[in-house]
Computed example of a mutant assay.
Amino acid sequence: MSKARPGSRNLITDVPGLRVGQAHDAAVRTGVTVLLPDDRAVCAVDVLGGGPGTRETDALNPENLVDAVDAVVLSGGSSYGLAAGDGAAAWLGARGRGFGLARGPGVPKSPVVPAAILYDLANGGAKDWGLEPPYRRLAIEAAETAGLDIALGTAGAGYGAQAGGLKGGLGSTSIVTADGYTVGAIAAVNSFGAVVGGDGRSFYAAPWEIDGEFGGLGSADLAIGPDDWGLSKINPAARENTTIACVATDAVLTPAQARRVTMMAQAGMARAVRPVFAPTDGDVVFALSTGLRPLGDLPELTVARLGALAADCLARAIARGVYEATALPGGVPAWRDHARR
């Protein structure tokens, strides 16, 4: 039996050197999640959705100048939500954090803050914000409150999310291996596809569940026929559906190795959502390396292990985000409401 177990919080913040902050606006029905490494961290991204909304992802290509980031932001708000990256960058810059190409008096550093957004504009919230969308403010609030404890479900970037026909949300998990590596995942689930099978209760991610973290129902009732999408959304419109996520590890990774971990982690999204990576989805996964634990004598094998664990954690995080969500007034039912029917 595997000796790998979730960390003490079963959250991505079990990864040493990483904190997370969240903020939401209940009237607008939206929110922001900011991942803050203690020091600049290697980062990579993989985009498989057909309608992504992102910020500074090109900078993460291994052949480019930037080899580390100062934060990663997940946000609601569609294109408006990309301003959350500006808020996080301003907060970091005010503290002297960022990439310094030139040094000298009066030359500020440039914080590197990749971001991804999901579409929650049609969820009934008060979106009449005029020239002041709330996302820059929410990102600053999130950064100010960053810590090790994370609210799940209707929180942060998942506050206004919808997962198929159920209330979406923010989920997170972790795993610690017997030889001491920590891997974690966080996901804001706003998918077109369903996260539960034909019974409306059993999560597709059930085979990877640990200690009943999303209900302990198992996978016995997951049978579903071809071309049956269950509790998915109907008649999706472009950019309305997205799962945005970040996986993290304390292992020392190069940008290329981190990129491989993100690519492997996408398997976790495919395990947890059906259908996934559709033309109307904006599915994006980031990976962060806090770089505190060397890879050892078999780096390729260790990277493979980390990628496999990241996929497991991401599948669990997606299910957990929906499991923990609570419904908004007048919105779609939460899993907990639907499961009682």
Rank of each mutant, 00 (worst) to 15 (best):
A68Y: 05
D228P: 10
G193C: 08
V20E: 00
R29W: 07
A142V: 09
V28G: 03
A325H: 08
G50D: 13
R320E: 11
G100Q: 07
R55E: 00
G98H: 01
S232Y: 06
A325M: 05
L314Q: 11
L231I: 08
A325V: 10
A185V: 14
P275C: 08
S191A: 08
G93A: 15
L288V: 02
G291T: 01
K3L: 04
P299G: 14
A71G: 11
E144K: 13
N10V: 07
A223W: 10
L253G: 04
R137W: 07
A94G: 15
A325K: 08
A59V: 10
S172A: 05
S2P: 13
M1I: 13
S172W: 03
V20D: 00
P279I: 03
P275S: 12
T280N: 12
A90W: 04
G53N: 06
M269L: 14
G225A: 14
V252W: 03
R341E: 14
S174M: 12
G296P: 09
I210L: 15
L301M: 12
V69G: 03
A27Q: 12
A27C: 11
N190T: 15
T182N: 04
H24Q: 09
R341Y: 13
V252P: 03
L288T: 00
G168L: 09
G98Y: 00
S174T: 13
G169P: 05
T242R: 00
L36R: 06
A94K: 13
K127R: 15
D297F: 06
M264I: 01
L74F: 01
L309N: 08
A84I: 00
L18Q: 12
P279F: 06
Q257T: 06
V15H: 02
V73R: 00
D38P: 05
A68H: 07
G98L: 02
D67W: 02
F277G: 01
A194S: 09
P6W: 03
E213T: 10
G216M: 10
F277T: 02
V28S: 03
A194C: 03
E324S: 06
V195E: 03
A84R: 00
A311V: 15
V273K: 01
